[in-house]
């Protein structure tokens, strides 16, 4: 395999993304988990740039690394009293091991399928990708899903406010 700038960038970014995910799983303090998740999501934005999806990279940084990470940080700071994930003696001692076995089996199946399937390598198509074409697709071809998404966001906003509001008489 020839070493190009793209492959080096992909290697570094994917290592950052996977390392962030691993740190999220293995960290002991919850705030460290949030930071490593934000790091992982930021690296995924870099992966989007490698895939000629620059607008998606910006959206990823804005929404995931910005908004959702801060929302999760609020979720932790408003709920937790002890900020560490303590490993007390739960009755299901074999649970992590069995989960690891199941997830490992799923991973093996997915990788087997991926590496046995032939993929077309038509890189020249991406030269025509532009923000203008993306906007035209969203606002012309997919305008009805776009409007439905706005309704869903409104419903989610109202629902989140009602759910998180304190009951008046309790």
């Amino acid at each position: 395999m020839v070493v190009t700038g793209e492959s080096i960038a992909f290697f570094v970014l994917s290592m950052m993304a996977i390392g962030g995910g691993m740190m999220m799983i293995s960290a002991t303090k919850v705030v460290h988990m949030v930071l490593s998740l934000a790091f992982s999501l930021l690296s995924i934005a870099g992966i989007y740039v490698l895939l000629h999806a620059e607008f998606l990279a910006v959206v990823q940084v804005l929404i995931y690394t910005g908004a959702i990470s801060i929302l999760m940080l609020f979720g932790i700071m408003l709920t937790k009293h002890h900020v560490t994930e303590e490993d007390d003696q739960s009755p299901r001692r074999w649970h992590p091991f069995l989960s690891f076995l199941g997830v490992g089996a799923l991973f093996a199946i997915i990788m087997g399928v991926i590496y046995q399937t032939p993929f077309a390598n038509n890189e020249e198509v991406t030269q025509s990708y532009s923000l203008e074409a993306l906007g035209k697709a969203v606002f012309k071809q997919y305008v009805i899903p776009f409007e439905l998404t706005s309704i869903l966001l409104l419903v989610a906003l109202v629902g989140a406010v009602i759910l998180a509001k304190k009951e008046a008489d309790s």
Binding site: S14, A17, I18, G21, M22, M24, I25, S40, I44, I47, V103, G104, L106, F107, I110, M111, I114
Partner: peptide, 8 residues
């Protein structure tokens, strides 16, 4: 990469 992140 997608498969690894999904499994994590």
């Amino acid at each position: 990469l997608g498969a690894i992140l999904f499994c994590i």
